[in-house]
Design a protein around this nucleic acid. Structure first.
Lengths: 369, 369
DNA sequence: ACCATGCCTCGAATCGATTCGAAGCCCAGG
DNA sequence: CCTGGGCTTCGAATCGATTCGAGGCATGGT
């Protein structure tokens, strides 16, 4: 019926019905049809029903999100940049629980989460994931902090994408949600000190720059370029100077075990009497190492962690740890995103942590033992 | 300079520069400016440089994805529907590894992953996540199979979104990637039978319908509505009829432990001599249960799993299991997505699995023992 | 010198929806 | 009978980019 279109300048899209077709069938204008779906604006029930009936007849399932997005300038998508490789990030229940809180909070507000892999830290080019450069997103969340010259952060800011940083140092103009890392490790180490420990070894989270494993010296300590790590290191030192600090490449059981074996498999006189790990997974690994070496916990060595995970397979041991509200952190990140979208400037949030004493810490062994 | 625009029909978008502004500054037409960025079509290096320079001056970071997406009809986004709650799905390394393979493969092709929570199975309304109804996506991946009347699948098909199903039954018109579940459990149970076991108990994955825990009867067995579970059940029965089958609500260590305690904490005459679990996490839980009950593995009871995960904390035990190529499954899902986008009709893929015998299975204990 | 051949660049249409002011309609009041 | 007010519906502009054929300009062949 309609005259020949001038030129078909477009590839034959999957010919789904459009709002225009629905409007035509319903005998109304496109703008009225739009009203029938969006509900924004007055419309007679009859008219709406007629439009919806036409839609049903054409198998029209609702406005095409792409059109809506262009018009509104919003994609409804929040980019979530996770630490490094997905595989590794998600093997850590800490990430998962935070993400869970984040996804639910955003979901309740009609926002979807676009997963953006972080950068393999061994990439010399400090390249940025292509999605960071060109994916549509209204806000980005950097879940695991930022380093001082974070290429991803820079790219996002250049694009004008508002950013929320989790567990990071404060970034001007960006939302921030963290926990009291420093107070946390300080509390747990103070607990160990009160039990009489003086030779305390520390198993630290990744330093953020080159992935390394092993004991560190003062020079290396100065290179920390990752916020939660830096804060937890500082907290430990608020209570005591550890006899040795062991750097790990990631917060996983196997790395904790490696560290534990290295730290504990030494003559008893040099052996630390307590291990403080920056994460529960690392602590769990250290615990396994202690068991494997035939050491009794906590009689021979105390072990403490950080996070407050529920690790059923550690049974009957119950880890002494610092509990942090992971899902709540995720929810708080979500709220910061919502606030940013509403044009507000969310205040930084620092959540409380709590020392939870379990069965893996006890009085320092007497030398005579 | 420019005359008054007729009417400002739009909210003041975050006034980022547009391609038109860049073109104006560079003194070229919008179409030429587009060419400078997309590289599709001939353009003089000088012209391109002039456009890029203008872009740099205006802080224009590249074409707005929303505009591009509307024009091309493609969002570059793949919706990934995960089983149920994020928290639970991702506590299972199986999901994570598959997702990792999927994300990398899609990433290499410029596609992003939109995380879509599945439905809390306790939702009586069988509602669908809003994202399923209205988020922009070119393809959707249902990672953990579909049930017979899957509301999410239906909604996606109505929308005309192509679907790839992982681990599911075949769906007409949808891509399919799975593993040889049936052959897998058959192989591991046959291994147990060869070791002399006849009293074999089975710890099964969730049945998909109501979340239940506990022993099942024949009636319940007929209600299985989840493909991997159904196939693994069938595989077991290809080798032997288990003396008892225990249904779990999810594939997590604690559920395996509960099952293990229930199955093993009985008089020795009734006790199964071997446990076959549908997943490594369940098997690990059963193993912990056996240890807790003071049973030696494999002298008193054999335990086998499925998946081939690397579970360092099981040490020194090494689980007998069926290895499945998880990352490869993810990659294969990704390839199916790409194929679908290319207009092809990807053939179903069924990946091989392999029995890997560890230290947790051994000869059936002699009754005299 | 003239015409054919390329190679760039430009204009205009288009993707699918939202939105805002204007227009149309009906009814009540003067 | 005419006019004013309140609702609903409509037209047209707009979001930001891509794409295709047409047009312009310069080069090379005869």
């Amino acid at each position: 019926m309609n005259g020949a279109t001038p030129r078909p300048a477009t590839p034959t899209h999957g010919s789904r019905p459009t709002l225009a077709k629905v409007a035509e069938l319903a005998g109304v204008s496109v703008s009225t049809a739009s009203l029938a779906f969006s509900g924004a604006g007055p419309i007679t029930p009859e008219t709406r029903d007629r439009v919806l009936a036409a839609a049903a007849e054409l198998d029209y399932t609702g406005p095409n999100p792409l059109g809506r997005q262009l018009r509104s300038g919003r994609s409804g998508i929040v980019g979530v940049v996770i630490g490094d490789q997905l595989k590794r990030s998600f093997r850590d229940p800490v990430s998962v629980q935070v993400l869970d809180g984040l996804v639910s909070t955003l979901g309740e507000n009609g926002l979807g989460v676009l997963l953006i892999p972080g950068i393999p830290s061994d990439d010399p080019a400090r390249a940025v994931d292509p999605l960071v450069e060109s994916a549509a997103m209204d806000v980005a969340v950097l879940v695991w902090g930022v380093s001082s010259d974070d290429a991803t952060l820079t790219a996002l800011q250049r694009r004008g994408v508002p950013v929320v940083v989790g567990e990071g140092r404060a970034v001007p103009g960006a939302g921030l949600v963290g926990i009291k890392d420093r107070e946390g490790t300080a509390a747990v180490v103070r607990h160990l000190v009160e039990l009489g420990h003086t030779r305390i070894a520390e198993i630290a989270l990744s330093f953020g720059t080159a992935e390394r494993t092993g004991p560190i010296d003062a020079a290396r300590l100065a290179q920390v370029d990752r916020t939660p790590t830096a804060n937890r290191l500082a907290g430990v030192r608020d209570a005591i100077e550890p006899v040795i600090t062991w750097e790990t490449e990631a917060s996983l059981v196997e790395h904790g075990k490696t560290a534990g074996l290295a730290l504990l498999d030494v003559p008893v006189r040099e052996r630390p009497t307590a291990l403080i790990a920056h994460s529960d997974l690392l602590a769990a690994g250290a615990l396994l190492a202690a068991h494997e070496l035939g050491l009794r916990v906590p009689q021979d060595v105390s072990v403490a962690g950080f996070d407050g995970l529920d690790l059923p397979w550690l049974s009957p041991d119950v880890l002494t740890t610092v509990h942090q509200p992971l899902a709540e952190k995720g929810a708080e990140l979500g709220r910061a995103v919502i606030a940013l979208l509403a044009g507000e400037n969310p205040a930084p949030v620092l959540l409380d942590v709590e020392l939870v004493v379990g069965s893996t810490t006890g009085p320092v062994p007497t030398p005579a033992d």
